[in-house]
């Protein structure tokens, strides 16, 4: 089962390395990881997508809590959170296919970020699942290269994300 974990860390040198080292050392698999600033200049947010059992997501959270730079760990529950990702996809696009492609892109609100002689780059933002579908659709045209940011997320405005206890039980 996949989980999205949102981690607030002190914006200190090595904080990201400590989190990712812990994952590697405990043999937890990271599917995607993204890190960036937050509303506070001294705090960064790391969003991790991990594939594991319930039992090990608890282990992951508890082990993460023990890291000195980690301020808060919360799991983003599906439905209770907004999750987004950005992808840049370079698609093979000879002149005769371009119209078709651009029409397709419109359905996904994908933007043409760059246009070349026989290729174009789509910029698409959406839920990771939407990005998967879009990628699938353009694949038959020939995907030359792709870059994705990995997901980021926030708990919905109505519900606060469940902060995982710094102190357990």
């Amino acid at each position: 089962m996949k989980h999205t974990v949102s981690v607030l860390v002190e914006n200190k040198p090595g904080a990201l390395a400590r989190v990712s080292t812990m994952f590697a050392r405990r043999a937890f698999n990271i599917e995607s990881l993204s890190v960036g600033p937050t509303e506070r200049h001294d705090v960064s947010r790391i969003t991790l997508r991990v594939d594991c059992e319930r039992h090990s997501i608890e282990q992951i959270e508890k082990q993460m809590h023990k890291l000195v730079n980690v301020l808060r760990v919360s799991e983003l529950e599906p439905g209770e959170a907004v999750e987004r990702e950005l992808a840049l996809i370079k698609v093979h696009a000879p002149a005769d296919k371009r119209h078709e492609l651009v029409a397709l892109a419109e359905v996904f609100h994908a933007r043409v970020a760059d246009l070349g002689a026989d290729a174009l780059i789509f910029e698409v933002v959406g839920s990771p699942e939407e990005l998967d579908s879009f990628e699938e659709l353009v694949r038959p045209y020939g995907v030359k290269e792709m870059a994705r940011t990995g997901r980021i997320g926030l708990g919905r405005s109505s519900a606060t994300t469940t902060p995982l206890r710094k102190q357990h039980v």
């Binding site: 039992h55 608890e58 282990q59 508890k62 082990q63 809590h65 023990k66 102190q167 357990h168 039980v169």
Partner: peptide, 8 residues
């Protein structure tokens, strides 16, 4: 003292 040991 270490909650991560519980249920590990």
């Amino acid at each position: 003292i270490d909650s991560a040991e519980i249920g590990k």
